[in-house]
Design a protein around this nucleic acid. Structure first.
Lengths: 352, 352
DNA sequence: ATACAAGTTTACAGCGCTGTATCTTGAGGC
DNA sequence: GCCTCAAGATACAGCGCTGTAAACTTGTAT
């Protein structure tokens, strides 16, 4: 069963292929009667345009690549969903490229391996540096996500990590916490995100007139939730006094929660724990997790806006956009009105 | 900066476009010296083949569509990852289509909207029925996933849900539990998965000589973790005696865990809770979740195997494949040593 | 009736690539 | 020296569609 082509429809309807094409595209200047006839032929034959052929001539593919480290990391899957939905709204579809944060995979993303496949790329780099991005990036429209390398030449969307971390610290300080730890420095692997968040953490303390205690910056073996738990336990075992923890992500926070439970320390009464990314993880932990909440929807729509502008011909220097963040408050931090039990629902305290 | 084409390379190298094409494709009969010259021209100009053009002539796109209800549901994001990796291994890339389980979106998946876009489709249906699938499906190679509708005409991959549910029940019975509830029937929305799992649950009880108590089949308002928690709480409030719960998925299990905690019932001592899908959720709950574990990797590779066979021309009736499942044991069920107290003869944990 | 504008429809080239058929060349056999 | 043959290289058509420009058809003003 051969696929139905434009010419087949044209023949049946007794018109030129271009007229059929015009009908398919709702071109206004087509006589109503002809339009009907053509439509009938289309329906009868079950014609579907061949997108590949259309692409070859228009040069547009209607697809964008989304390159992220891991599809199944909650933050990225939630972000992917926002991006896919926003893309669909703009009549693009998304092809997902998983880099696993590996350098060669990240290189491949930029090296036009996609030649003619996608109209643009949304890329959350992890390992690759700004220089490499600038060097390897050809001319496919590109928008960068995250706190990673940001060459001045590329568009870029992120939240204000430093401010968010400082706000998180202030939030805990306001509740009387004074021994606030930062959990997120992974040995041998200081990511851009951690850097920014650590900086904001220190800044928040200093703004409040406190002296950051280096002993409160906890170092973790790897990026697993288990390792973060061990780090907390080790600190506790060392006798470090802690009454609050700001974590680089929800996974680490989950580990911290476990470590506290194991040590018989109540959360949030003994130690308040604050996650980052506001992922689904925070809804399943006990207690549920207060977490810095990037506005994923704004992230997605801003990224697509910048990208589509590039696709539509915009040629300017890199634009950097900051999107809002908030704090989703759940059970791992004391409620503002101290004694009340904290609901575990969605609504966040708006910020930024 | 116009994109470099085959003719540009051909001109620089002083050969025909076909020779360049042959070099690109490692066609054997090219003189070494020419090959070198052409390669030099390719490198110099930074030529990348235009995949769209290649596709138009070859008819192959090298892409498969993965149509799932939700990208950011842990089960589907974990499965997506497996599928994306398996696809990459076979030189396919994946474009993800989110249906949200909506009927019209599921229809669109089949209606060749993708004409010429993908070589095949892997589809996890939720709402659409077997009849509609058979009717709407044209000739794009298709593999179905999940427990949903399975027309005899289409290939299909799943785990043995009935057996898995029965095994889950036996597992709890072996630990001395006798009042085992099933949590997963959502009012007005009996999905195929729930059906099969409920059947297996009942079967497991009957095999053990127990009489299924209808009062132990808990009905949930919607698919949220909150609703499942409420259902458990309501049952407890009604005074229903329960010492084990088999849940239709990990989300429901997480809700059950919360409800038990709220009611002051210890898990697993008072009630053992068993989830389904072995998603990341189970690693973050307190206690962590014992869960029926579909072999996602086998699911992915089998689906791709069937699909590529179709793509490569196989024309046969629908093939149905069962892939292995197991049981990931964590804290929400008593440890095996505790179970030793109770004699019972049934195959141990792992199963196929 | 004539000219002209606006509305409709069409012919045709060509997007960038690959498959097929064909041509060229040099080596080897007689 | 002539013929054959396989390897190496090429010409050319065409995948299915759309953009452009040109042709044709009305309707209206002159």
């Amino acid at each position: 069963m051969k696929r139905v082509r434009l010419v087949d429809v044209a023949e049946v309807a007794g018109v030129s292929t271009k007229t059929v094409s015009n009908v398919v595209h709702d071109y206004p200047h087509v006589a109503p009667e002809l339009r009907r006839r053509v439509q009938a032929a289309i329906d009868k034959l079950g014609y579907r345009p061949n997108l590949t052929a259309r692409r070859l001539v228009t040069g547009r593919t209607g697809m964008i690549a989304l390159a992220i480290p891991e599809i199944d990391h909650p933050y990225f899957s939630e972000l992917s969903r926002q991006i896919a939905e926003e893309a669909a709204r703009r009549n693009y579809r998304v092809i997902i490229e998983q880099t696993l944060g590996k350098l060669d995979a990240e290189h491949a993303v930029l090296e036009d391996r996609e030649a003619g496949l996608v109209d643009g790329i949304i890329f959350h780099p992890v390992s690759i540096g700004a220089l490499s991005i600038a060097k390897l990036h050809h001319d496919t429209p590109l928008v960068l996500l995250g706190e990673g390398a940001m060459p001045a030449t590329s568009d870029h969307v992120m939240i204000d990590n430093v401010a968010a971390a400082a706000e998180a610290v202030h939030f805990l300080l306001r509740q009387g916490r004074r021994r606030i730890a930062f959990l997120g420095v992974v040995e041998d692997d200081v990511t851009f995100s951690t850097d920014k968040r650590l900086l904001g953490y220190q800044q928040g303390l200093i703004e409040a007139g406190l002296d950051p205690d280096p002993g409160l910056v906890l170092s973790v073996r790897d990026f697993s939730s288990e390792a973060s738990g061990e780090a907390v336990r080790a600190a506790l075992d060392r006798g470090v006094s802690i009454d609050g923890i700001v974590c680089r992500d929800d996974k680490f926070a989950a580990g911290a929660l476990r470590a506290c439970a194991a040590a018989g320390i109540s959360v949030p009464d003994g130690i308040a724990v604050l996650g980052w990314d506001d992922t689904a993880i925070g809804r399943y932990t006990t207690p549920s997790l207060t977490s810095v909440a990037p506005d994923k929807s704004a992230l997605a729509s801003t990224a697509l806006e910048l990208l589509t502008e590039r696709i539509d011909g915009f040629r300017g220097v890199g634009r950097h956009r900051i999107v809002p963040h908030g704090l989703t408050i759940r059970g791992s931090t004391p409620s503002v009105s101290a004694a009340l039990a904290v609901p575990q629902g969605e609504p966040a305290v708006p910020s930024a």
